[in-house]
Amino acid sequence: MTTRQPLLKVAALRKTFDNNPILKGVSFELHKGGIIVLIGPSGGGKSTLLQCINCLTIPDGGEIEFDRQRLDIHSRPALYQHRQDVGMIFQEFNLFDHLSARDNITIALRKIKKLPRREADERARLELEQVGLADKAELYPAQLSGGQKQRVAIARALAMDPKVLLLDEPTSALDPELIGEVINVIKELAAKGMTMIMATHQISLIATLADHILFMEDGRIAEQGSPAELLGAGCASKTQGFCDRLNQLSGE
């Protein structure tokens, strides 16, 4: 029985930058609790796709259906609401430089969700605890390590109670010894049933987390399937080849 509605449905999404088609009709569905991993060569359009999903980049064509509602990309209130429902984690963290870890989390709660300061602070405390940074609430981004910044960014996104989380290479800007702490947080999220779409080159995340892999190349989904289908023994998929090359690069 797979008649239940997908949480997110993307159909024929297109985006062109300066006459360069970057997304050439991308379609997929994501069910609640599902985890899609986006992989593929650099410039293939993974970041563009993720940014189109929450309309940080407005797509030129195609449809986005979220929670059974077709998203009207021309309605600003609809966009603002949509972005609250879709959390995003960036490669470069994008923490607000002038706010402490706590206020990075509370500012959206206070200014968008209009929560009173005390409730927002309490929520921030809980979220920081979840990512293991309860004692860093007062520190500013400049005082945090990359791994800590990314964990604050995850806490900040989660505090908005998003229905789906988009992660754009969440560990790519980190020193190797800091990757583990972020991966652990992401794995915990997965275990709790968070719906996610993640672009990553992190082999350990691809194989263990994905229940669906989209291999993107040249603005299209070149290949897709479950890890077993694409990475199973003896299968000669593009995904397999790509992962082999990643493995060689990371010297394994």
Partner: peptide, 15 residues
């Protein structure tokens, strides 16, 4: 990135 971080949370441009 500062704009992106805010907009991804649902901030309006003015906010």
């Amino acid at each position: 990135g500062q704009y992106h971080g805010a907009q991804a949370l649902g901030f309006t441009t003015l906010q």
